[in-house]
Design a protein around this nucleic acid. Sequence first.
DNA 1: ACGCCTACCTGACACGTGCCAGTAGATGAC
DNA 2: GTCATCTACTGGCACGTGTCAGGTAGGCGT
Lengths: 325, 325
Amino acid sequence: MAKPRSTSTDIARRAGVSRATVSYVLNGRTDQSISPATRERVLQAARELSYVPNAASRALRAGESRLVLLINSGVPWSTNITDFEDELTRVVAATGRTLMVWRRQGPDDLASTLAHLEPCLAIALNRLSSSEAALLETLQIPLVESDLVAPGSDLPARLQVQHLVEAGHERLAYLTTSEESLQRFATPRTSGFLAACAELALPKPRLAALPGGMDISLAAVTEQLRAWLEEPDPVTAVACFNDFHAAVCLAAAAELGLWVPSDLAVMGLDDDIFAPLTRPALTTIRIDAKAFARHLWDLARHQLGEGPEPEPFLQPSHVVVRASV
Amino acid sequence: MAKPRSTSTDIARRAGVSRATVSYVLNGRTDQSISPATRERVLQAARELSYVPNAASRALRAGESRLVLLINSGVPWSTNITDFEDELTRVVAATGRTLMVWRRQGPDDLASTLAHLEPCLAIALNRLSSSEAALLETLQIPLVESDLVAPGSDLPARLQVQHLVEAGHERLAYLTTSEESLQRFATPRTSGFLAACAELALPKPRLAALPGGMDISLAAVTEQLRAWLEEPDPVTAVACFNDFHAAVCLAAAAELGLWVPSDLAVMGLDDDIFAPLTRPALTTIRIDAKAFARHLWDLARHQLGEGPEPEPFLQPSHVVVRASV
DNA sequence: ACGCCTACCTGACACGTGCCAGTAGATGAC
DNA sequence: GTCATCTACTGGCACGTGTCAGGTAGGCGT
């Protein structure tokens, strides 16, 4: 009952060799010559005692852990974030490391977290405060911020414009969010939308931002839609920051008795799980979140000095045509 | 440059005291008397060197870490899982520990993960394989399985029945899932549904299970609905395993040209983010995921010998009335 | 018999921390 | 003056691992 877990010393004793030999065998070192008989005895003993090396001790001795910390401070759950985390977990594991997801609550929690666990690298999905960045700096933990992908993050919005124009629309509106934690995604998308409109010489596009959270008010969106449609040159299509915004937009259109897409086209972004189920089903942009995860990991490995600097990332994304445009 | 991070030895040297004194001061031990002057000198030195204790070393010395591992293998829980993880993170942090979320990919990954990080407790949202459980046993890591909440997990489905009956329905159907990883939730809900029907002496309820994933076929659900409606005593209301199933159900009803709720009532479960946005807006059950997190943590603390055995958990949940019933 | 080489293995240190046991000096009681 | 008590501190061990320099035994050539 509850005998303490076995250590390499136990194995050594049982196999009748020294601890050093055990370490050499279990770590498969090729520069040390171990006789096959001894090797087998050690492995056998390890199996019998179901030995698992102590993680803390290893990390202490090695001077660094094999843990990667993903700092996710309230990025709203969606199909994409799940895909992203799964893929990142996979590629990190492929290099003999382990990815841990930490849901940051307050801005001051990082210190106590790092007192419990020392990652060899941190990946942040949101911008960290300067004190947090300083802390990582002090601990000499490299940091990769998803910021770095900015080069391609306006692409999805450009695709929205392109698709709407191909469908015959010219007077467009963009519905975005003013939620702080989403600005990292929202800002480049809005610029991409505006830039694409300008490049195609479209009439001046309309813009509106909804407050954050799930408290998006249907009434407010309905009013916004009504305003856009009552202008002299009424909007004929609305591109949205994400599928959730688009779904609210569809609901608002229904409130106003509008037919989508004939009276108004609505386009989402994310291809979220519910996108095929709205009425009409949402035409949207699918972003390859897994490719994004792989790119972020390439950046991380470069930072760890294990790989070349990756090519600039062009967010792979494509239009998913359904019925709302 | 890039001087190695400072250790307690550095602090001791700088403050002109021994390392033991530093340890006593920084750990705020009250059973050791330290003069205020010395204490201040130590704290000052620690601040100047921005000292952060080494996590690995601490864990090694203490014999156990302050990490709690949440094993989440792809639970597609949507909004609720976010609430759950946030609340669990909060309550775990309140006891001076840190919660890490690990997204298990394959059934064999646990060993390599535990080689990198040794939690003082594991919480599993899905059933673990027996080899995984054995591994935790060997490492003497206590395990809390969300299984344990079974007592209350049939409640949400009972609430669905109750609400449908209050709305005047008697001939009910239940749409559930056959996806393996969801059976933990699906099984008690289905039994709850059937039990509630039996207790209220309703006509024999219908049952159907959809295959898992997001590949739920609208056509298949449409066919099922048609079958239920063509029977001699046609179904008048469908309760669903979750909101996603309910949304598919709404779409299928639209395909058949049915009006919801007059021709058919549809009830979801989860109050997912998109529930207010379906047409008609989904009447559903809201489960208090945060309360669930707190209860799980109470169980965990009991297992750690830090608290009393918590009361049996009655899943706090209530009906969110919208338009689909 | 001697030195040398190789194959195989071991003793001992270091990583950074927490804490027990012990010590030097001051204070007080008789 | 002596002994006990208290304050304020320190020396050193232990946690479990990886690794390096060294050690031993046997074989081989001369």
